[in-house]
Design a protein around this nucleic acid. Structure first.
Lengths: 136, 136
DNA sequence: TAAACTGTACTAATACAATAGAACAGTTAA
DNA sequence: TTAACTGTTCTATTGTATTAGTACAGTTTA
């Protein structure tokens, strides 16, 4: 799990860390109970203040993706999202709406849209299976 | 086309205007060549400074969604996205990746995901057809 | 031309996000 | 206990986003 900061992207470092870790968990690069690099070591590696990493980790903890314990460290959790099914579906629905608005302005047709939706899901699925072949 | 500002959302007013207009165009609530409310009249209606509305309109013009002309007003354009096909598909792909990461952390399964992707597209399509039934 | 409308440009005030430094507190192991 | 590691809290600084006020410029129409 390698985190890289892009200072030209315009996105703040702490948000880049949040996104990359969320992405890595979803893609199976890191799994439940895996330890994350400690706040200070990651900060040193990225040459930023440790509070910037701490802010990213706090945000991830708030989302239920990781757990932090003073003195121990940070770990990926397995119980993401305590929301009930209908609420989770609503959040997804809003996110999909955003993509559809984007697709419309990009003049993308229905078939291409569906194709991309399926392709990308398969790509994530594949990476997760490659990472833990015995568990599936 | 009614724009409403939510001051509790945390999103800045000018971005709310941008999003709502992009959404309205994608949903067919406003169509190509339709006039938008003038900068000053919309500002007065929303009780904000006209430069805030101007900023939103500038952003929309930069995205190729509307055209503004001093003295005349602002109109929805029809030529969105001058990017080539592969680039547009790449942008969509990245946006879909974001949704998939979100879906994973929401513990949403493949079927539900695909169902929502299709459902929401149909909902937009339906609204556009209802708006201009003779054109399709 | 004059008035009333359009959008635009410039400047300044304010608020907030982002980052950093220093000191604090919990955990482990020698 | 002590040392070395963990995360946490507090405060301060910096930079930038956001908004607003004012003055300017283009277009239309009476």
């Amino acid at each position: 799990m390698r985190i890289e900061l892009n200072y030209k992207s315009g996105q703040s470092p702490y948000l880049q860390i949040v996104e990359q870790i969320k992405y890595a968990v979803a893609a199976g690069s890191i799994e439940s109970h895996d330890p994350l690099p400690s706040i200070r070591s990651l900060a040193q590696e990225l040459r930023i203040n440790h509070n910037t990493v701490a802010k990213a980790y706090t945000e991830l903890e708030r989302s239920g993706i990781i757990a932090t314990r003073a003195g121990k460290g940070c770990y990926v959790t397995d119980n993401h999202s305590p929301l009930k099914k209908s609420a989770r579906r609503q959040i997804l629905s809003d996110a999909v709406d955003g993509v559809i608005v984007e697709a419309f302005h990009l003049k993308i047709d229905h078939n291409t849209y569906l194709q991309v939706c399926e392709e990308r899901w398969s790509a994530f699925e594949k990476r997760r299976k490659e990472k833990r072949p015995t568990k599936n």
